Amino acid sequence: MLNALATVILAFASVVPPPGPVTIEVLSLKGDGCAAGSAAVAMSLDNEAFTVTYSDFIVQAHSSEVRKTCEISVRVNHPDDYTYGIAQTDYRGFAHIGAGSRGIAKGHYFFPGMPTRHSSHTIPGPVSDNWQVTDQLPPQDVLHGPCRQRKPLSINAELRVVGKSATTFMTMDSTDSSVSSTFRLSWRKC
């Protein structure tokens, strides 16, 4: 009975976001998929997720393989007695991929000095439509940042198109025409 109660308390502590405002800021931005000033971050009002929005992240190929990347370093400003990890990432976009071609969306995120979380999704052609993929970790596999330290979170996104079709392109744009990824947070008290 005591072990079950401890499990419930631990699970509750890992899902409750901190009270009050949590802010997020871009520390650095680089890559051929996101020129200076072409990416922004925003924290949700409930402190449960943040969105990275790109204004010009598109990859296009003409019977070849082309890739573009965007590396963003962000700082989440939260109360000292909390830490967070990435529990789920949602990627949405549009792909125009001919027969014999494919698009690939990759994501990597990590805190410096800690393990990296990798994801990769392939979209085979032919397709000319919106796409959406979700990476979700079981709660016990979420890697939280260190307590009482505000290490930056590094987010690396890659779009790649490979193929034989004359014109293939892929973006990470959402239904509101912004190019974005949403990172859902898992909070834990220190």
Score class of each variant (00 low, 15 high):
91 Y>F: 15
117 R>F: 13
70 C>I: 01
111 F>N: 06
120 S>G: 04
60 Q>N: 05
131 W>P: 02
134 T>C: 04
143 L>V: 15
159 L>E: 07
153 L>T: 07
92 R>N: 07
163 G>M: 03
51 T>N: 13
77 N>D: 14
91 Y>T: 13
45 L>M: 09
55 S>E: 12
138 P>R: 08
133 V>G: 02
129 D>V: 01
66 V>G: 03
90 D>S: 05
161 V>S: 06
54 Y>F: 15
53 T>I: 12
51 T>G: 12
88 Q>K: 14
72 I>W: 02
139 P>H: 07
54 Y>L: 12
104 I>V: 15
113 G>N: 07
133 V>A: 12
162 V>I: 14
115 P>A: 10
147 C>D: 11
81 D>F: 11
134 T>P: 04
99 A>R: 08
78 H>N: 00
158 E>I: 08
101 S>Y: 01
78 H>L: 00
101 S>L: 02
147 C>T: 12
153 L>Y: 09
136 Q>L: 02
109 Y>K: 07
60 Q>S: 08
75 R>F: 02
58 I>W: 01
156 N>D: 13
83 T>H: 03
78 H>T: 01
139 P>Y: 11
144 H>T: 14
52 V>D: 11
127 V>H: 01
67 R>F: 11
127 V>T: 10
57 F>M: 15
105 A>G: 04
140 Q>D: 09
100 G>E: 09
78 H>A: 04
120 S>L: 10
144 H>G: 06
159 L>A: 09
112 P>D: 11
125 G>E: 07
118 H>Q: 09
85 G>P: 03
